[in-house]
Amino acid sequence: MSAYSREEEEQLEDLKKWWERYRNPLIYGLLAGVVTILGVRAWVAHQGNLAVSASNEYEQLQLESRAGNVDAVLTRGGYIIDTYPRTPYAALSAFILAREYVDKGDLPAARTRLEWVIEHAKQPEFVHIARLRLGKLMLAMGEGAQALALLEPVQGDAYAAEYEELKGDIYAETGQTAKARQAYELALDKLAAGADGRMLRIKLDNLDAG
């Protein structure tokens, strides 16, 4: 019995020593943990607040765009892109701006907005769309060759039919009939089931042999 309790006492002694030795690291560890978790939460909350603010601004932007209030759209759109560049609303605002500029006939300004999306957007789906729209713009600005350089290296995935059709347009415009035919045929082939291929077929049929 006494041997047992002595053993117990020894264990208690060991435990105390262990505690003496590791008390500080344990406390620091706990503190570090609490600080980390609070930090992460605060950061997440901050991001969430940013996104909500951007969302509300974007709602306004949509309303102004629908109302045809061009000046307000240009101002607010720029503000969203500058203030909330890491939210998806920046890319969508850039799309709205690009469209407004195209309607105004200011292609270079539209181009700048689309280039911003390609460079900065974190969503690959937005980058694809920006690239396709930029390609159209460049073709309209007489920069077919540069547009091809932009489009050709891209793996189009679900956007493949759109890429091929645009490439076909550029080739057709620059007189590369064989390449245009190839691109249009590929586009028809990749067209989603149920999509309307009439326009594409007309473009293909219009090509002469060559």
Partner: peptide, 23 residues
């Protein structure tokens, strides 16, 4: 928000429209 942000901003350039009207 996601889908309309993409579909409501489709671009048609004057150049593209002319090409299509001719065709």
């Amino acid at each position: 928000q996601l889908t309309s942000g993409v579909t409501a901003t489709a671009l048609v350039t004057g150049h593209e429209l002319d090409r299509w009207l001719r065709l």
